[in-house]
Design a binder for these strands. Structure first.
Lengths: 320, 320
DNA sequence: CTGAAAGCGCTTACAG
DNA sequence: CTGAAAGCGCTTACAG
């Protein structure tokens, strides 16, 4: 790789002039800039980011941490953040951290050591983890994680999604709404459903199980025996939703006629099934992208605010 | 962040001694090593990777390039590579490149500029792109991409997967095997199926369409009219396979009794459907992990060989 | 508008 | 076994 020194030599200027020309400093004559740029072009010059980092500017690299890149949900968020980073031509470092402890003990120190300019935090972080991140001084913005400390976040409202989903099903005729969720998950889902059904005469049931297709299937199988009258299911994850759906269909329950199903995710699973799964889709790609954009602003010292992005209802065939 | 200088001061040694102690140089007394390490621990010292990179060692960061992190296939490969990198505690830079041109014009120069020590190339690269990568001097290993130039690769055999899939269906009674593939895809799939059916009396049909559920659905719909006798479908991707399956079922074709379906991927889609999709699964996670491990070896100067990893047959309910 | 110099935090010959 | 010094490739006050 050509270095700045060689570029400067070819352009016949001092290395510091070359540096300024390439960084578009206002105190450099247009003629010089042109000359230096041509030289850089000719040599295929690419700045060494490590050197740049060391001399003050930082590599500009941002870290992207998600709980699991292999999940068909977090990978979308990562995709949005990655695209935003590449649009701004800053490198993106990928980290996976499944637990708070792993994040705090391993990932956070590693990010700092690597010289990341900031981090997009696309995973569920406790208040303590959020506080410690802020205390570390590393600029960070949360992605699809509710802000509990001072860090800004880009996220979608689970409460709203659940409330609108339950309301939608109730309006379509459901007398019973079943919320299928995961033990330990955000209670905002429960509250949203409950609020939507208040004073409607429809009742709410809550079923919990692991976030998997198999668990949903088991839940659906037993649910089939207890279905009386028009029912709507709000599932917190696509996998669960499909498991429930297939078990019900297997037991002779017609979807959506006897029982409608709506998921609060919107992964590949939602479209690759028949009948297609209706979803209140989280804008994960945009959340990832926006979080990265805000991070870049924050790194530049600009103030950034938290932002709640709207989900959108995508009606497919699992609801009326 | 504490610097090496502060650690050295606290340990009462010269900075170069501190550096060597931390890097476990053989020419440092055990007692000194202990002292320096305690000092580092006490200060929460973390080496500045940019500085290290600049002074010769490289950041050690490896680049991870995939065609699309949002795909439920490539994200698994990325997950394997990411885990391997973190096990070796080297940072992983994530890049997405959908085309050869984007890879060559944007990603490759960026990786070099960022000072990546090497790259795991988890995308389909033409011979030219492979050659240019090698010429760039950046250590690289291909992941799930057939080696066409000098770069080593970790991949699975498409020919074998297709051949075994077709043979399996034929043995289960299929008189016609339909290969559902994507225009422009590797012809090894076609050849594998053809070879498997040679001299069996079973015939091969090839249908092509985009790699999507919708395209598969359309294909399946028209295929339903032309089904005579026991048929087996080998689909190159899960999305297509499911589309075909659902369309057939929709048209009254029983899966697997009238028509068996086998996919050559094994994404989340395969398990989150009913009946479950039988697959000849590519070991994508292991491919990603192994490619990263080999890359790390290659960076250290050790010779590495290409390796073909076996797929495994996962029988679910879409075949007899 | 441009140049000479210092410095970022490390590693690694070179002495001792 | 340890220290003093040079150097990696940049950026940025400080002079001029």
């Amino acid at each position: 790789m050509a270095t700045l020194k060689e570029v400067a030599k070819l352009a016949g200027v001092n290395i510091s002039t070359a540096s300024r020309a390439l960084n578009d400093s206002p105190s450099i004559s247009a003629a010089t800039k042109v000359r230096v740029r041509q030289a850089a072009e000719e040599l295929g010059y690419r700045p060494n980011l490590s050197a740049r980092a060391l001399s003050g500017k930082g590599t500009g690299a941002i870290a992207l941490v998600v709980s699991d890149i292999m999940s068909p949900v977090w990978n979308i968020l990562a995709g949005g953040a990655c695209d935003a980073a590449s649009a701004a031509s800053v490198p993106a470092l990928l980290y996976c951290a499944e637990t708070d402890a792993d994040y705090l003990d391993r990932v956070l120190p590693e990010m700092i050591s690597t010289g990341a300019a900031g981090a997009v935090l696309g995973l569920h972080l406790s208040e303590e983890a959020q506080r410690k991140t802020e205390a570390s001084g590393l600029p960070a913005v949360l992605a699809e994680c509710f802000p509990l400390a001072g860090l800004p976040a880009v996220y979608s409202s689970r409460y709203d999604a659940a409330r609108e989903a339950a309301a939608y099903l109730q309006q379509k005729g459901a007398k019973t709404v079943v919320l299928v969720t995961v033990p330990g998950f955000d209670m905002a889902y429960n509250k949203g459903c409950a609020d939507a059904l208040k004073d409607t005469g429809a009742r709410l049931r809550v079923l919990t199980g692991p976030n998997t297709y198999q668990a949903g299937f088991a839940l659906g199988y037993s649910l089939a025996d207890e279905l009386y009258g028009p029912t709507g299911i709000v599932a917190v994850c696509d996998g669960q939703a499909l498991g429930v759906q297939h078990a019900l269909q297997n037991r002779g329950v017609r979807v959506p006629q006897d029982c409608a199903i709506l998921s609060l995710e919107d992964s590949v699973l939602a479209t690759a099934t028949y009948p297609g799964l209706t979803t209140m889709s989280k804008p994960l790609y945009r959340i990832g992208a926006k979080a990265a954009e805000k991070l870049l602003l924050k790194i530049k010292g600009q103030p950034v605010e938290s932002e709640c992005l709207r989900h959108t209802l995508t009606v497919r065939k699992s609801t009326l």
